[in-house]
């Protein structure tokens, strides 16, 4: 016989709610609903912040602060809001605070991101080449202007529409598209340059 607890009932009920509905519930005082939002979004948010800051520890701190601010400013969430856009809007501000405090340009040199472990298994050469490629790309991202890096990461990894990206960046949809494309071209130039330097 399958036991069905009250917690299961609550879980299955929150599973069917949209992000927006859950955040409205949080705003109205049902703070537990934020747990479901955390489970849905902390992974992608953390992934974005690691690539944006280049540091795992900073990314964890900022992600934590983002959820703290969701609680603190829950009353400012609007009826017509998009939860994801609001979350990345907060993340952007928290990251800006982080950069202001650390007063240092982010670099992609966190050793935890690029574990250099001896690999004797078959296809180890291919994997090493892939690791090198990833390291180069991380470096290229780190060299990119912060605004460019931000729009590129939002447009490629966070499953946001350009309407939502425009809301996060507080610009028009057209401007967001142009910025994303310009950022991709800048990354391409830096990435190719680093590849050349690596080969020579």
């Amino acid at each position: 016989m399958v036991s069905f607890s009250a917690t299961d009932a609550v879980d299955s009920a929150t599973d069917t709610l949209s992000d927006h509905e859950l955040m409205l519930a949080v705003r109205d005082g049902e703070l537990d609903a934020l747990g479901e939002l955390f489970e849905r979004h902390h992974g992608p948010l953390f992934g974005f912040l690691v690539k944006f800051t280049g540091h795992r520890n900073a990314a964890e701190d900022i992600a934590q602060t983002v959820f703290q601010r969701m609680l603190k400013y829950r009353h400012t969430y609007r009826d017509d809001g998009s939860f994801t856009a609001w979350m990345y809007h907060l993340a952007r501000r928290c990251a800006a605070d982080h950069f202001r405090k650390s007063n240092a340009a982010p670099t992609a040199t966190d050793p935890a991101d690029f574990r250099q472990v001896a690999d004797d298994s078959p296809n180890a050469g291919d994997r090493a080449a892939t690791r090198d490629d990833h390291a180069l790309l991380h470096s290229a991202l780190g060299c990119l202007d912060r605004d460019d890096r931000e729009v590129l990461l939002l447009s490629r990894f966070q499953e946001l529409s350009f309407n939502e990206i425009a809301a996060v960046l507080e610009c028009s949809v057209g401007a967001a598209k142009v910025r994303a494309h310009r950022a991709l071209r800048a990354l391409r130039d830096i990435y190719l340059q680093l590849q050349k330097e690596n080969l020579s």
């Binding site: 902390h42 992974g43 992934g47 992600a63 892939t130 990833h134 490629r156 990354l187």
Partner: peptide
């Protein structure tokens, strides 16, 4: 460049993030 970007591994947060979040909640 885009293909390389898309192939970057996705970083996973450590357990502390979840623990700290629920403590804060």
């Amino acid at each position: 460049t885009l293909a390389a970007l898309d192939s970057l591994p996705v970083a996973k947060p450590g357990p502390a993030l979840r623990k700290n979040f629920y403590a804060m909640l």
